[in-house]
Design a protein around this nucleic acid. Structure first.
Lengths: 211, 211, 211, 211
DNA sequence: CATGAATGAGCGTTCATTCAT
DNA sequence: AATGAATGAACGCTCATTCAT
């Protein structure tokens, strides 16, 4: 009944249509930004991709810049929501799970993340707001985790900062080819195996255990 | 004799001056490309940076695109020359050394590599010619190295492809902040320590070895 | 009875509402035209000022141009109605009164007149229809008045055309700062004094009378 | 010899060509601004009028706004230079002469002044910088002149401020039709007669002197 | 009656490139 | 060899207007 109401209320209907259009524009723009970069994509390109007149876009976004910002913001919020799992980071299985969850979030918005990466590479503001501030807490939690494990004798004595950085490095490096589009995104099963492998390599290293 | 030739032969002198100018243009352009991207840099920007008229640039390069290509090519040749060390990859010290050498090459041409990264992120042709084809042999040699060590029981049984990929991932991930310019390039000493740490983590992992 | 008609007849009620809206639009538009010019004012600006949707305006006027024309026409009719006093122009007091009345008409529609002035400055058609044709009879009557006074020896021998022109010049010059908005419109008292002063200066001149 | 040098010096020659082009653009732009207003004139219009590509204009002016400013500034400087005569204002002949000189300056740059008038009508900044600040000293000198003559009994007792204002009003009113383009500019002879007439009317008034 | 959505035309401006000198 | 001048094409964006609802 409530649903019916929502569906029929004209204001709400209009709102949903606007949101749908905005989303269509963002998707088309993200795709083009990902392939040609922000600067290499014109409003005309985007308009053609969503099959609208150029000037129509301006009814949904105040300008090209804002389309980009909407794309970045939307994606950041998505990933943010998955970072609550961070606090569950207690042992190896939870570690695997964390990597798996974040990977899933990034992969399911591959294009948006490709755009963010490209933009953060050039634009300091984007780097700061959309990347650094988001990943700093992750770094902190990782460092704490490593510090505790090291103190407890579970991990070898190791510089927590360096180790945390290299964990993230491994993670990013593993995703890069997928983000770049030269490799197909892994299926959920492949992804889980990958997460396991990353953690195993990180924990155990390459070298065979003696004895 | 060689000197005389170089100094006196007018053709050679002219050639050297041209090369010097080309190089100056490439340096200025690379710096701008690194900060603002290829598309975000105009011929005018470059011309001002080298203190030449815009149209003068066209005496040295047929167009903007070719300046970029010259930058990428030049850098690739530099790194190529350091990949001959690859064949020395035999044991852990040589591994550390290899990483150190490649890092050094990349860091000493930070700007050029930042440009290459940005461009490869968008341009498939650049990715293929300047990145993939260059790193494929590295992958091969790494995989072989790991396969041999695994066979010899020095390394744990592990998928060589996955392991090779993660080694490179770690390497790239570690360099990314420096390339991006949010971290100062390490001094030679720091770089050596970093190389050691990477290798140690890769070989030994995080987990403490059981007594 | 009239009231009943007005109140009850639906067609009339509708008509009155339409007229009220048209007038509201014209007022808002005139204000904006006066401050930003016709070209510098957009339909969107006007719509916002009357708190209507842009497309709604087109229910009241066929286009932007017609809003301007309605503004000009309306104002001209107002001033026209005050020019009947012209025929009363007989002596100095009636002269003062005439100037006072016209001033009052213009000042009480300051904004509209500012628009007319701006538009007539650029648009020949507007100049002709809304300014010249309206002021030509005034010129005629003034010339006749001066001619008669000159013939009667009341005025010095003077070219009536030149004198008439300068009377109007004085008048316009005195109003200009008010129209432009850099001076507050005079109160009725101030206006009357100003009218007197203009006439006195015109009649008596600056120079002291001998003897 | 120096002249020859100046003529042949390539830098100077280039400079003169640039100035000539700038002037041609300003003239064409002023003409269009005068007829269609600043907002009603497009860069394309101006470019066509000087028979250049649109983008070529940007080699001479940073933008449309700057073309307008150059026009206004140039004209203001011209008139400024003639205001030095103000200090000679001592008696009636010098008064006539002053009006004649200023008129001449304005008429010889009719189009530029028409533009200034139109722009000052809408733009407060233009009004302030290019009109008010220029004419304030004139007002002062006029007021002083009138005050002195009044004190000396040469002029009737009269409010100097009001009188000064009306003198300028008469002056502006007389020029308006010429500026607007509905009247041909007077020949030097006509102009001189007009100046005389204005002054005579101002000094003597319309009314016949008794006795 | 009111309006949100849509758009073609046009705007001021930038830019990679050409060319005469 | 170097460059100022010139430009067509394209860009991001605004606007008056139309139309379906």
């Amino acid at each position: 009944m409530i649903e019916e109401k929502i569906i029929s209320h004209p204001e709400a209907r209009r709102n949903r249509r606007v949101q749908r259009q905005r989303r269509a524009i963002m998707d088309a723009a993200a795709d083009l930004f990902a392939r040609s970069g922000y600067q290499g994509t014109s409003i005309k390109n985007i308009a053609e991709a969503v099959d609208l007149g150029e000037s129509t876009l301006y009814g949904y976004f105040p300008g090209k810049q804002e389309i980009l910002m909407a794309i970045l913001t939307q994606q950041v919020e998505l990933v943010d929501s998955s970072l609550v799992h961070l606090n569950d980071l207690k042992d190896r299985p939870s570690f695997v799970n964390l990597i798996d969850v974040i990977m899933e979030k990034i992969i399911s918005n591959l294009v948006y993340n490709r755009v963010m990466f490209a933009e953060a590479w050039l634009n300091d503001e984007v780097l700061k707001v959309f990347v650094i501030t988001r990943w700093l807490p992750v770094m902190d939690i990782l460092q704490n985790f490593i510090y505790e494990k090291t103190s407890a004798g579970v991990f070898r004595p190791i510089d927590p900062k360096l180790a945390a950085r290299m964990i993230i490095a491994t993670f990013i490096g593993a995703l890069l080819p997928v983000l770049r589009g030269i490799e197909l995104p892994p299926s959920p099963e492949q992804r889980h195996i990958l997460s396991e492998s990353i953690v195993e390599l990180l924990f155990e290293g390459l070298a065979a255990r003696k004895g």
